[in-house]
Amino acid sequence: MEKHLFLAGHTACYGCGEALGARLVVDAAGPNIITTDATGCLEVFSSRWPQSAWAVPFIHSLFENSAAVASGIEVALRAMGRQEEAKVIAQGGDGGTADIGLQCLSGMLERGHDVLYVCYDNEAYMNTGVQRSGLTPYDSDTRTSPFGRASWGNRYRKKDMPAIAAAHGAPYIATASVAYPKDLQAKVKKALNIVGPKYLQVHVPCPLGWKSDPALTIKVAKLAVETGLYPIFEMENGVVTKVRKISSPKPVTEYLKLQGRFAHLFKKSGGEEEIKKIQQIADENIRKYGLLSETAAAKVSAEKE
């Protein structure tokens, strides 16, 4: 087999985007790292005693303290003159990052620890059976934001974590997707060469929670980007320096219809209005981050005229 630093034999579900994301991240980082992880899917499917899928040093403590544990590791290496030994990568899911772990992450970012924080964003609490998190998208059907006669699913829009990280003055912030593995790995390498706190949010489809075909994990992730719903960009010192351009934005329905978590939007009358709202979110992203490629932008303006 190929040599990896996150190994087979882990017990993630079929087509797990997070397992793929984690492997791509640690493979890009190389062996000289120390990793932390929040409680969640990744921790459970990778470190059930007496086995471990990690070929790099790994520590899991609690749900909400991955960033603080990583802060401690970083200062300990410095205090003992071992800072050349390893770079520190903190990991967590979307809930462990944007909700319950936000305070520890804020502290880590604000104090300027030389740590790369990676958020594997599968857009809900998946380990416990799909409950809504702060990064669950609008109208998504979860166990705690269910679709029902009086509900279209999650009432809130995704929390803008990159902006929150940016507000702390972190020198490098990026989003990535398992749909673009080379881009993801390049970002990990780039981040590890920047001193200070880094935040990387990786979109990782969850076939179980998204009710999507495991074989389509990459395809679904790609559509999130191609519709504008998951903008891929880099921010350096507070300024967006690079975005993944979209040559011709796809309608959000192409993304939504592949996932059971949005199926209600296509069944219940009034769903069209909700889909329009989601399309607006994508359009806003496209404008805000300037996602249209030059040719696509020219086409759009020609259509308007």
Partner: peptide
């Protein structure tokens, strides 16, 4: 408290 040896998941035939 339950240290696990690295790269041992290969024992698990998924």
């Amino acid at each position: 408290g339950g240290l696990a040896q690295p790269a041992t998941s290969l024992a698990n035939n998924t």
